[in-house]
């Protein structure tokens, strides 16, 4: 998983609670200022579900929409990724020096 890819964005917004595809994209837009295209969003959802990092939320689907939630494995993967990003970010900022 790369730090800036669609899978991490999806995991990040799902860490806050279960959402369906449309709401996931709205949350990503709020976070980054840009929506993901359908191929990127549903590709990421498929990959994450195949790797059991997310799963369908129990009994919370809305009509045609599947509500998804993050799994414990998903939380662990997200935490590891964010910690790595934080280390890279701190090292980069240190190297740049004061603004």
């Amino acid at each position: 998983m790369h730090s800036n890819d669609a899978q991490m964005l999806v995991l990040t917004v799902l860490a806050d609670g279960p959402l369906h595809g449309y709401a996931i994209n709205a949350a990503i837009e709020e976070l980054t200022g840009r929506k993901l295209g359908p191929g990127s969003l549903y590709g990421a959802l498929s990959r994450l579900e195949a790797r059991e990092l997310i799963r369908p939320s129990d009994g919370a689907s809305e009509g045609r929409h599947r509500t998804m939630c993050i799994t414990d494995a998903g939380r662990a993967a997200l935490r590891a990724e964010l910690e790595q990003m934080a280390r890279v970010s701190q090292a980069g900022l240190r190297a740049l020096g004061p603004a």
Partner: peptide, 30 residues
């Protein structure tokens, strides 16, 4: 993927219009 997200993919494409087609096709190919 179609069984799970087919309806949502079609809805998203309808809402976004033609500019979403390249990403939709690339996503399918990937």
């Amino acid at each position: 993927v179609r069984e799970r997200w087919g309806a949502e993919i079609d809805d998203a494409l309808r809402d976004t219009g033609a500019r979403a087609w390249p990403d939709t096709l690339a996503g399918a190919a990937r």
